[in-house]
């Protein structure tokens, strides 16, 4: 379970103060799917950064599995991120000069997984996104859709509990976007992974259990799907 309690994030100082988030609170059950919606500049990306411990809010708590991650030391947050979370970004951020295999193996190296165990998991992740035959190809040789599939493989290889995706289909055409969407939701359902999507694509957000609308750093509306 992820609990966000009274989070306030301010950028800048004194005269240039800008409240990116203001007293934001909500809860996401384990294995839930959440879409964070809002216009650009509304604070939705900041919210994702705060929830993943990349950014620290001035006020508030982020409680994951009963632990306030904002109280953790840098080393522990890093460990937390490498073991329990994954990210998918709008502009992929795959390393063009590295092979697909080495792109996917990076999170496992960071999490200190031994080389012998890495191999199995990397290959399984590449198979899951149907890129196994591109194992040795350099990432820069892939098409946009393939790059995002590679990013998905990288995100699922360490079997995270929480998967953050920041506009995962934003740079893709609707057909390839749909492929990525299906990959994410299938994985979410199959492995009961909490999925946090930042998007302004209404179609994508409708597939989520919870929709959190953000406007000027304040929660405008939370919609929950009736089960």
């Amino acid at each position: 379970m992820i609990e966000v309690k009274g989070v306030t994030k301010i950028y800048g100082k004194k005269d240039n103060e800008f409240k990116a988030l203001s007293d934001v609170s909500f809860t996401i059950p384990d294995g839930g799917s959440v879409a964070i919606l809002g216009k650009s500049g509304s604070g939705k990306s900041t919210l994702m950064h705060v929830m993943s411990g990349l950014d620290k809010p001035q006020i508030g708590q982020i409680i994951i599995d009963g632990k306030n991650i904002l109280k953790l030391k840098a080393k522990e947050i890093d460990k937390f991120r490498s073991r329990k979370m994954s990210f998918i970004f709008q502009s992929f951020f795959v390393q063009g000069n590295e092979s697909c295999y080495n792109n996917v193996s990076l999170p496992l190296e960071i999490a200190d997984v031994s080389p012998s165990r890495r191999r199995k998991r990397v290959e399984a992740a590449l198979r899951a996104v149907e890129l196994y035959d591109k194992k040795k190809a350099k990432a820069k040789e892939l098409s946009g859709g393939q790059k995002q599939r590679l990013a998905v493989a990288r995100a699922i290889v360490n079997s995270p509990q929480i998967l953050f995706a920041d506009e995962p289909t934003g740079n893709l055409d609707s057909i390839t976007g749909r492929v990525i969407e299906n990959l994410l939701f299938n994985y979410h359902k199959k492995f009961h992974v909490t999925l946090v999507l930042v998007t302004h694509d209404p179609e994508l957000s409708e597939r989520c259990d919870i929709q959190i609308h953000i406007k000027d750093g304040v929660i405008d509306e939370i919609k929950r799907k009736k089960v």
Partner: peptide, 15 residues
Amino acid sequence: QQIGLMKALGMRKRD
């Protein structure tokens, strides 16, 4: 970017 990604993936400052 690569450094940012690595850090987001939980790579330690020291590493």
